[in-house]
Amino acid sequence: MINRILEEVAAHGSFLITTHESPDGDAVGSSLALANYLKGQGKDVTVYLCDQVPDIYMFLPLADTVVHTLPERAFDICFVLDVGEFRRAGKEISNFRGIGKFINIDHHPDCEQFGAINYLDSQACATGALIYRIIKAAGHDVDYETALCIYTAVITDTGSFRYSNANPEAFDIAGKMVVKGINAWSVAEKLYESQPQNRLELLAMALATLSVSKRGDYASIVVTLDMYDKCRADAELTDGFINYPRSIRGVEVAIFFREINEGRFKVGFRSKGKVDVSALAAAFSGGGHHNAAGCTISGSLPEVKQVVFDLLEKSL
């Protein structure tokens, strides 16, 4: 599969790169790693995201060149990274007719095979690891800019090597990126110790909503539109909030209810391993990994919480 991708890269000159809505570190890191690599090969590259690049990832090379409106032109190839399902790349990509061929690269289990080429490996720690494999298979060295993006993809998607996907390849790639000059402390500082004050204010309000089941095996927090208004914040600042209920001793599943508009909630799930939360999300037409998944549910907050908790009770 990698050889087929390299053949397409060699045969074409213009490339569009995109990833999923509400992009995380792997989505942004893998997209920009691929963009840096392709530009280094003299290719014409555009990175398009349907949502803004979160501020904490703006230190990555080429992050300031990402566009959020598709240009009125054609592209030979569109790389779609880390989406799980094609619809998660956004409606603009779905309706865009200026693409010759889609190449799908992903590590989500049961990823939709929508591409002319589908390079899928659910055992990979991150989509960034798949990008690294492609570059190495091409026989090219990884430059500093690309290494920084790959390292960020791996460290964020493994939870700084705390999650079950922190496999030997994850440590191997991270080590090789450090050899390329990546300063692990500098990246960690940018990702975890440079947060704005209003993020902590929002977190304090979210933690005040903490709810733990009677058995102590699942816990949840909530962020509402009203909280955003009070803290002058937005959804971008909620990245990582779900790890707080997940960290409680005895909790197997954490749930994060995030209001996206009146009567509609994004629901994130995190598992410590015993529960396949991708199955929970799938019950509400969502998806994800065994230990991390999400969906969107309509209804009032009490209604949404009730249907989720009812399903959790059955699962646990």
Rank of each mutant, 00 (worst) to 15 (best):
residue 304 V to Y: 09
residue 270 R to A: 00
residue 124 A to L: 04
residue 184 A to T: 05
residue 261 N to M: 13
residue 54 P to Y: 09
residue 243 N to K: 07
residue 284 F to T: 13
residue 81 L to K: 02
residue 168 P to D: 12
residue 91 K to F: 10
residue 166 A to H: 11
residue 113 Q to E: 15
residue 258 R to V: 11
residue 221 I to F: 02
residue 74 A to G: 04
residue 85 E to H: 12
residue 212 V to L: 13
residue 82 D to E: 03
residue 169 E to F: 14
residue 78 C to S: 09
residue 255 I to F: 02
residue 14 S to A: 08
residue 303 E to P: 00
residue 120 L to K: 00
residue 299 G to S: 06
residue 282 A to G: 00
residue 170 A to R: 10
residue 130 L to K: 06
residue 188 A to W: 02
residue 60 L to C: 03
residue 238 T to G: 03
residue 159 G to T: 09
residue 112 E to I: 05
residue 160 S to I: 13
residue 33 A to I: 02
residue 71 P to M: 05
residue 164 S to E: 13
residue 264 R to L: 13
residue 52 Q to T: 15
residue 127 T to K: 01
residue 54 P to E: 11
residue 24 D to T: 05
residue 166 A to S: 13
residue 268 G to V: 03
residue 18 T to Q: 01
residue 182 I to G: 06
residue 116 A to I: 14
residue 66 V to S: 12
residue 53 V to E: 07
residue 179 V to C: 04
residue 275 V to P: 02
residue 48 Y to F: 06
residue 276 D to I: 01
residue 239 D to K: 14
residue 140 H to W: 01
residue 19 T to L: 01
residue 293 A to L: 12
residue 46 T to N: 05
residue 263 G to Y: 09
residue 26 D to T: 02
residue 100 G to S: 13
residue 200 L to I: 13
residue 236 E to A: 10
residue 245 P to I: 10
residue 115 G to C: 09
residue 254 A to K: 03
residue 172 D to L: 14
residue 296 T to E: 14
residue 39 K to Y: 09
residue 73 R to H: 01
residue 27 A to R: 05
residue 148 L to C: 11
residue 34 L to A: 02
residue 57 Y to R: 01
residue 62 L to M: 13
residue 200 L to C: 12
residue 58 M to D: 07
residue 195 Q to T: 14
residue 26 D to R: 02
residue 178 V to N: 09
residue 196 P to C: 07
residue 265 F to Q: 04
residue 61 P to K: 10
residue 98 G to R: 10
residue 173 I to N: 04
residue 105 I to K: 00
residue 89 A to N: 09
residue 294 G to T: 09
residue 12 H to N: 15
residue 181 G to V: 13
residue 30 S to N: 11
residue 199 R to K: 14
residue 242 I to L: 00
residue 257 F to I: 06
residue 244 Y to I: 02
residue 62 L to N: 08
residue 22 S to Y: 15
residue 16 L to M: 07
residue 173 I to H: 00
residue 27 A to L: 11
residue 84 G to P: 00
residue 271 S to A: 03
residue 103 I to C: 07
residue 96 F to E: 08
residue 113 Q to D: 11
residue 234 D to V: 06
residue 59 F to D: 12
residue 255 I to W: 06
residue 209 T to M: 05
residue 307 V to P: 13
residue 200 L to F: 12
residue 18 T to A: 00
residue 104 N to I: 10
residue 166 A to D: 12
residue 51 D to Y: 02
residue 176 K to E: 04
residue 152 T to W: 08
residue 199 R to E: 14
residue 134 I to W: 06
residue 2 I to R: 03
residue 126 A to R: 00
residue 8 E to V: 05
residue 129 A to N: 11
residue 104 N to C: 07
residue 291 N to F: 10
residue 166 A to Y: 12
residue 291 N to R: 01
